[in-house]
Amino acid sequence: MNEILQKLVMIQDLDCMIDEIKNKDVKKVQKKMGLEIKGDEKLEEAKKVLEQGIPPKVLSRYHKLMERYGRAVAPVVGNSCMCCFVTVPKRLTVREFANRELRNCERCGRFLYWV
């Protein structure tokens, strides 16, 4: 798998976790589970470390996509971008091959990640 793509997926997962721990419903469930969540700055730190390994142009595009859509990396399932549902080229149906390079959806521009 492309190293930069892997980092982008990890950053987006972290962004999702950061959003989630600020969510009241999540806090309620976690409290019900008897769990306490402290120190979300640790997630920001982990994100920064990952961001260091990404070329500035790619990172800038990631942030722009996040601002625009709230999600910069789109999973590809069943040959479709799961964010805008456009069909991706047929030659990219093999996951290992498709994830080898950083690719963007032809329609929405998000980075594509074959799940």
Binding site: M10, D13, G34, I37, D40, K42, V73, V115
Partner: peptide
């Protein structure tokens, strides 16, 4: 990595010998 980061916020051990490590990730369908 994500699960490890989640654990940094507090253990997902709910007590009584049970743990529920959990996260949301794009890596699953």
């Amino acid at each position: 990595d994500l699960l490890k980061n989640r654990e940094k916020l507090g253990s997902t051990g709910i007590g009584g010998g049970i743990a529920i490590p959990h996260c949301r990730s794009m890596a699953v369908e």
